[in-house]
Design a protein around this nucleic acid. Structure first.
Lengths: 349, 349
DNA sequence: TCCTCTTAGTAGATCGATCTAATTATAAGC
DNA sequence: GCTTATAATTAGATCGATCTACTAAGAGGA
């Protein structure tokens, strides 16, 4: 009958019911140690009785702190990111953070809008896979506002920010040498967004690997492209039309490689047999694809956990001298996982 | 030198600089129409000059409103959910919402904790794929707190909440009939979490399809299991050990089907040839798998968009009489997508 | 007994926007 | 010119928890 005003239950109400002050009730919700077990129970009982819901908005408004973390990724359509995100989110959850999610779809303007909104929400930290060509000034801004930030997978030159990634160069070199060991002389580098650290490192590793194997580089076999399945298929069709098909290819990542498999199939060619293939990331699908995809495993799940831990450390730190703080650079070692796509070649080298 | 206090720039500061009142400045940030272009420009200029950052926390604290929406999914490891999430998030972004993300990994206690935290954050709405066996009282609670909620893919009996899904029963029936049309008499139903609406509907469609095709049901060919790749492989190995392999199988979803393909391969059997296979969802991988996976497309992307639109509508509505409100039930039609996995059977029926 | 030290609890100000209700400028009608 | 209606702007209260600084009550030591 009397649901007139429907006022929210506040700490004030709880305190009154429990016969303590608002401040004491506040200390109870925050788990302060300087509260007797007895009063604590009294307050908890009242909270229960009245159906109290903690108001994080009010709390973080007053305290100028929050327990929310922003995660910004380019596109969850790539399973690499879903696997990363699952672990990241899970770990952040364990650490007591709530996550705000943003997806940029590789658009810098979208990224800036998302960042701005997250700042408006007072996130206490940000974990992001930056879009290609991100303006490093945004990181200066974050530093100025004292919001720690961890980059994953892509470094931005000029940004003094924590970074988690793998040794793309070494991983790529391993892959090239593996293909060279199989006798390949025509090894392409397919896909990838130029002007990103992740691409440049791969390119360097690719060139280095070729050189060490004394294979001349062929500019026609270095074909960048968006990191998508479609892109892989498109590139293969293009190579076939130009009659420039290499005997082996190193793909920017696994989904590009999976696209390449499809592109080959469209042309009645069989990945692995007609062309050796190596991917990058080791997403789940790589193991179950047909043929099984040889790939450079980077441990995406581990990245997520490390990123969460590192950010937590930054947030928890007192940061008395934010300027003097060293940035961390966590490089997880890549590992070549050999499957059928690179070991069943039946063509002519 | 003088970065002593580092006070945040507030609307007050902006107002003073622009020579207007705090209230006016507030109206400007909110894009009120009853502000002259002239004063608006003055205020915007001051905001720019002082580097003002809108404080959404303070705003939503005062207004008891927020522009954040909670998304709760079970596991982003399933590409079905990543595709859904990408579209959902994108649409919500367009509508001006920020998303809080939670992952339950099918744990009800986790789900309850996540929900609670989101309520503490004053989300203005929730979109969720509920875990199996979700207690309907949580929805009553949401209704009481006046937080609209849209369920996706799973209905909870007893919960009067909006729902978006597909006609699982019809989709499954179509798939069974397709297999029956190919001459199959032993069609299994593999994977899926019992006691969920999504499973029950499929089961009903499966039984109905068999009946219409005058195929007797075989309890040994109804094998539930978690909706994961691993599960698909495990089930197949189990069937082979028991020498109960059907000639065709309808899988709970695509990743189970992909797991089945792997399980078959482990036993030197070829999906499509030795056993016909139909999945559910039509994730991207279904098209590029080998063999291409016949599946029931449900338009996951569309679900996301519809869910966002519906929630937006609920949030925007005045909801003068929340109790009288009808719940929406949006059922997007499923579509059978036929690929090689169900059309190249070479065994004995 | 008196003083100090620690522990448990509290009063009152405060964070920064938005709300309500009122005020002042501007236009419109006669 | 004067009233009335409408548009533009504003003062001051307010949301609910946390913070700062303070008090009260015991504990322990000399």
């Amino acid at each position: 009958m009397g649901d007139k005003k429907e006022k929210r239950v506040t700490l004030q109400d709880v305190a009154k019911d429990a016969g303590v002050s608002r401040a004491t009730a506040s200390l109870v919700v925050r788990g302060s140690t300087s509260i007797t077990e007895q009063t604590k129970q009294k307050v908890l009982a009242s909270m229960n009785k009245l159906g109290y819901v903690y108001d994080r908005v009010a709390a973080s408004f007053r305290s100028r702190r929050s327990s929310t973390v922003g995660i910004i990724i380019t596109d969850i359509g790539n399973p690499f990111f879903s696997e990363l995100l699952a672990n990241l989110q899970d770990r952040l959850d364990e650490l007591g953070y709530t996550t705000l999610l943003g997806m940029t779809f590789e658009s810098e303007s979208k990224q800036e809008r998302i960042l701005e909104t997250m700042l408006e929400h007072h996130v206490c930290g940000i974990i992001m896979a930056p879009v290609a060509g991100t303006n490093p000034t945004v990181f200066a801004r974050l530093k100025q506002l004292n919001v720690p930030c961890v980059l994953i997978g892509r470094e931005i030159s000029g940004a003094r920010v924590d970074y988690i990634g793998t040794d793309f160069q070494w991983g790529t070199k391993m892959a090239v040498r593996h293909l060279a060991d199989q006798g390949h002389k025509h090894i392409a580098l397919l896909g990838g967004t130029p002007h990103t650290s992740a691409y440049n490192e791969r390119l360097a590793g690719y060139l280095e690997g070729l050189e060490e194997s004394r294979i001349p580089t062929d500019q026609h076999h270095i074909i960048p492209g968006p990191p998508t399945r479609e892109s892989g298929a498109v590139i293969i069709n293009q190579l076939i039309r130009q009659d420039k098909l290499p005997t082996a290819a190193l793909c920017h990542n696994d989904i590009v490689a999976l696209g390449v498999i499809v592109g080959l199939r469209e042309n009645r060619l069989v990945a692995g047999k007609d062309m050796a293939l190596v991917g990058f990331d080791d997403i789940k699908e790589a193991a179950t694809a047909n043929p099984g995809l040889t790939t450079v495993a980077v441990g995406s799940g581990q990245w997520g956990i490390e990123a969460a831990n590192l950010l937590h450390q930054r947030i928890s730190a007192e940061t008395p001298a934010p300027a003097a703080q060293e940035t961390a650079r966590i490089i997880l070692p890549p590992k070549l996982v050999i499957r059928e796509s690179s070991t069943h070649f039946m063509g002519v080298h």
